[in-house]
């Protein structure tokens, strides 16, 4: 232990336990909110993208392509510095960060959901229509529930990306896990302990995600569910 503490000062890391716990929790809460919002909006963008109206699907496609072709950092800056010009200083840092990340991750969710909807057999819709459901009913009661269940694995992958993306929030002065590491560095001036601890915390979250996704695959997925992918 004596030897190890030459390289890694556990005493100082110990002083920052609370800061890192708060950082991890904030990261999880912020990512969770963004996840729910981006799945919600993702469903609508996916439906728009699959619309037969050229204006509607082109709008959705343009949104998806623009977001996918520009860095998240620039999107965050545009929204962070741009929102006050447009609507005044109405949203705080956290709200702005959530808005930015939701706008960023909705297209990715939409593409995943679209693939899920496309994977549902046409016969399902035909069956639904034949028992008298209209298009909307068919979509929300028959197609979407199955599509969403089918895309749980890629969505978990996207969630892992989302959690990592929250690290950029520190740049616009939102306190989260990366911010915890930066605060520790700023106060103690020791780089190794600050950043290694941050990395370890992210890895812990990632491992939790892995375990969770294994459980989901085993619990929900029978053989048939697996073959869909």
């Amino acid at each position: 232990m004596e030897f190890l503490s030459n390289y890694f000062n556990f005493r100082i890391v110990g002083q920052y336990t609370d800061v890192f716990i708060e950082g991890v929790l904030t990261t999880l809460v912020l990512a969770g909110i963004c996840l729910v919002l981006s799945i919600f909006f993702g469903i609508f963008v996916a439906l728009m993208r699959m619309s037969s109206n050229p204006f509607v699907w082109r709008t959705a496609a343009a949104y998806i392509q623009i977001i996918r072709s520009t860095p998240l950092l620039i999107q965050i800056y545009l929204i962070y510095y741009g929102l006050p010009f447009l609507i005044g200083n109405f949203f705080g840092e956290e709200a702005t960060a959530i808005i930015a990340l939701t706008i960023h991750s909705t297209p990715y969710m939409a593409e995943i959901i679209r693939a899920g909807i496309a994977s549902i057999d046409r016969g399902q819709s035909e069956g639904a229509m034949s028992v008298g459901m209209n298009k909307m009913q068919n979509m929300f009661y028959i197609v979407l529930p199955q599509a969403l269940a089918n895309v749980v694995p890629p969505m978990l992958g996207q969630t892992a990306v989302l959690i990592k993306d929250t690290s950029l929030f520190s740049i616009i002065a939102v306190f989260e896990l990366m911010g915890a590491g930066l605060r520790m560095y700023s106060e103690t001036v020791i780089a190794t302990e600050s950043y290694v601890t941050t990395a370890v915390c992210y890895l812990l979250i990632y491992m939790m995600m892995l375990v969770f996704s294994n459980i989901v695959q085993k619990q929900l997925g029978g053989g048939a569910w697996q073959t869909a992918h």
Binding site: Y80, Y81, P84, F85, G88, I171, A173, L182
Partner: peptide
């Protein structure tokens, strides 16, 4: 207090933008 990791430049930007 809001701390900007990008330095004075970002602090100035945030003041200019009304953040």
């Amino acid at each position: 207090l809001k701390e900007y990791s990008g330095g004075t430049a970002q602090t100035v930007q945030a003041v200019v933008a009304g953040r």
